[in-house]
């Protein structure tokens, strides 16, 4: 169990964020969620910069990443994460409206751990977010930190 680790939700749309939080609330994991409103905030969080300067150190359990965000978009965030040897182990789930094949292909090519298309129907969206939150935030065992040498350098 990784109850202590936060879940980062990168979502620029406040309504989507509210709906996602509503879903997490049903699973009682909403208090673990750190909401970032664009890609830059996600990177600030990960590198403990800006408003996250004084946060507790440590990587999140999972990052839910929207593709289309202002300032730094989801793919750019993903690229940065997977290029950083400290951040690379963090599971990244793309949570997006886009069904475009090239987005899918590019996300996986950059090393996304999962790709979930936000369903239009709320109950499907609800169950998707619940399952994701439960699986990645609770069930899944995140990688241990400080094992830099164990990571193959690619």
């Amino acid at each position: 169990m990784n109850a202590a680790k936060p879940i980062v939700l990168a979502e620029d749309n406040p309504r989507d964020a509210e709906l996602a939080l509503a879903a997490m609330e049903e699973e009682h994991i909403s208090d673990k969620v750190v909401l970032c409103h664009d890609g830059a905030e996600v990177l600030d969080y990960l590198y403990c910069r800006g408003q996250f300067k004084s946060r507790l150190k440590g990587n999140p359990a999972v990052i839910f990443l929207d593709l289309k965000m202002p300032k730094v978009n989801g793919l750019e965030v993903l690229r940065t994460i997977k290029a950083d040897i400290n951040l690379r182990p963090i599971p990244v789930v793309m949570l997006t409206s886009s069904r475009e094949e090239r987005d899918l292909a590019e996300s996986y090519a950059l090393g996304a751990n999962a790709y979930v298309v936000k369903p239009v129907e709320f109950h499907k969206f609800l169950s998707a977010v619940k399952e994701l939150g439960t699986f990645w935030g609770v069930i899944n065992e995140p990688p241990p930190e400080g094992l830099r040498s164990a990571q193959p350098h690619s």
């Binding site: 989507d16 709906l19 886009s98 475009e100 239009v120």
Partner: peptide
Amino acid sequence: SYSVSHDLRAPLRHIDGYAAL
């Protein structure tokens, strides 16, 4: 069509979502 795919779906999801809420 990319924009349609991404942007048009979001409000629909919100309509359905908030109706459910």
